[in-house]
Nucleic acid binder design. Structure first.
Lengths: 103, 103
DNA sequence: TGCGTCACTTTCCATCATGGAAAATAATAC
DNA sequence: GTATTATTTTCCATGATGGAAAGTGACGCA
């Protein structure tokens, strides 16, 4: 039985939520993400940096009507890693429900 | 949209796996858990202590053919907390898949 | 051109979690 | 008693996390 393998970059609660928010979207604004996650600017910035360092996230700065905004999107690699992590979680949940792992 | 609320006592990878292993069982042996989790004795002991402190886990010591063994089982409270955590994870996964949270 | 503001980013700092190794305990077996 | 097995706890070093505050860069405006 191979235990689910979690990605530590993704597993941390804030980053997990961040990925979940970004997964269904093309990209999202810094402030929107900050508000949804209910974290401070500095915390969001730092968590994003970690995902970016891992190559999971790309940041795009744009000037929108004279206001600077930062947009974030998952990279292909980030989506793949997140999908794998979700699979690991689902395997764990299946295990918890008493299902045998697939052979 | 209420974000999934994770239980920090359960979310840590080793404890999450530990709960998932115990969930479908009445109880399990210390050594079995240690081997399945692939952690050292001290690590398992410490993680168990944390779950026990939270009231999620009960330890039972028994002497089995002259050998002392420790058995662990989730308490009712632990099962409830774990179930809630799993629900939160599933909500997150649903969100990531673009589903709207239930109203 | 210089200043204020906005939108982050980075630094500083204090706290907490985690893990391995080794010492400490507990309960027998001999 | 003494060794042995099965944890448990201590010691210690490292790394993560978060908030507050200082720092940066890009305008908008007088």
């Amino acid at each position: 039985m191979s235990r689910p393998r979690f990605d530590p970059v993704i597993h941390a609660p804030n980053r997990l939520q961040l990925c979940a928010l970004l997964a269904p979207l093309e990209e999202a604004e810094f402030q929107t993400l900050r508000d949804e996650l209910e974290v401070s600017d500095s915390v969001l910035s730092k968590q994003m940096s970690q995902l970016a360092e891992a190559g999971y996230l790309r940041l795009r700065k744009s000037t929108f009507h004279g206001r600077q905004r930062t947009w974030a999107r998952l990279t292909a690699r980030g989506r793949k890693a997140f999908a794998a992590h979700v699979e690991a979680l689902q395997a764990l949940i299946a295990q918890a429900n008493g299902h045998h792992p697939k052979d």
